[in-house]
Write a protein that binds this DNA or RNA. Structure first.
Lengths: 218, 218
DNA sequence: CGTGCCTTTGATAACTCTCAAGAGAGGTGG
DNA sequence: CCACCTCTCTTGAGAGTTATCAAAGGCACG
């Protein structure tokens, strides 16, 4: 993309004020006007079922974009809440559309972004279809590690921005199950855990979790 | 969209030959060139895990579009296989992009389509996070019914284009579990089943499955 | 220094999977 | 046209995994 075009893009992006932990970026009822790029911190998106139960639908780390599911409805259909102090950029969608009209590479890029989101959801689907709870937790850890790496950080050691409750909810498991799996992974020397700090000690073992249950309670 | 523009869109769409049952529309290794609109019949998409196990990622009925997950990678990352005799329209993606550049409403429409795909995946996520197998099967039935309705067909009685195996795989369940649930739904007068023909007899009960387990084995 | 939330651990129960077997449907070849 | 074979679907019994219930310790925040 040419510098002049980058400038144009830059001009429509609005820097938002920092969000405190627990603060909402948008809510399900809100009009959809913008998508958001995470600059720092982390957010989760969730929906409330008819019975008022929360269902976490995604975690968003710096460099990732959220809010795209609202495009087709003119309304957000999920809530976005910050997991820790976070800053986001607001990208007014209609202006992005206008600009995409002028800059082919931007349109292409944005199509690509949405496609990537679809791909990520597909992977999540596969993850949840795997029966084993171990697989699910391992996959989430590996996913977070990969996303850390993309940001130029360690892909082994990092801090989980979300609670065990959020992890369990996201993966369709009970909190207790997640907790037990963390403990077991640690006993098996696959993972080091201290609260929300984690370090991947044996990546191949984490990847292959479930394929062979030989070392189940070693 | 103006008639002239519709014409332009129409010209880039290619009618494909009919696909027989079991035939592939594209495979995971293939270059990504087009997205496809289903005209008749039904298809499923699936991926193969490292161990060669199949994971069904979606079902596509007439009026629906598949292949969008390949946009970001220039390669298809799933396989698409027809479940019954089907016809599809091929929409060369680069030409669609070009045309979107000229026709704002087309760009908007396509953004919307992708957003809808993301939304559908979110709903699937919620479905799979619900623990209950009953909920999952019920939700799939209701989803298929709704999609039937969108095509102007009955939202109560229809034919399942996919096997129990595909349903089970898609929902992360065992075939036997799906079969048992169909039987039980029938015993509970919520559903009428004959092979792949189904009729929804008690929609509220299907919607509320799992919320109240009072009539479990009545 | 409480209070509340998060996390862990144990025991029990429920759900779903796996294994096993048989019936039905559809396609193929003799 | 029928026999045969395969694939699909159903049903049963037992085993395994995960949820639920209960309780206690740790940590952060006011």
């Amino acid at each position: 993309m040419a510098p002049a075009q980058l400038d144009q893009l830059d001009q429509i992006i609005q820097r938002g004020r920092p969000l405190k932990r627990g603060e909402h970026l948008f809510r399900a009822a809100d009009d959809f006007n913008s998508v958001y790029a995470v600059r720092s911190g982390a957010l989760k998106t969730y929906v409330l079922s008819d019975e008022g139960e929360e269902q976490v639908t995604g975690f968003y780390l710096p460099g990732e974009i959220l809010g795209m599911d609202g495009i087709s409805t003119a309304r957000h259909l999920s809530n976005a809440k910050s997991l820790e102090t976070a800053t986001v950029c607001e990208i007014p969608f209609h202006r992005l559309e206008d600009l995409s009209q002028k800059i082919p590479s931007l349109q292409h890029h944005f199509f690509g972004l949405m496609s990537k989101e679809i791909r990520a959801d597909r992977e999540l689907h596969m993850l949840l279809s795997k029966k084993s709870a171990d697989d699910r937790v391992a996959s989430l850890l590996l996913s977070l590690a990969a996303r850390q790496q993309r940001r130029g950080l360690s892909n082994k050691r990092f801090r989980l921005p979300m609670s065990r409750y959020d992890i369990a909810n996201y993966l369709g498991l009970a909190v207790e199950t997640v907790s037990r799996i963390f403990t077991r992974f640690q006993q098996q020397k696959m993972l080091w855990v201290d609260g929300r700090e984690v370090e991947i000690l044996d990546r191949p073992a984490l990847c292959g979790t479930g394929s062979h249950d030989s070392v189940q309670d070693a």
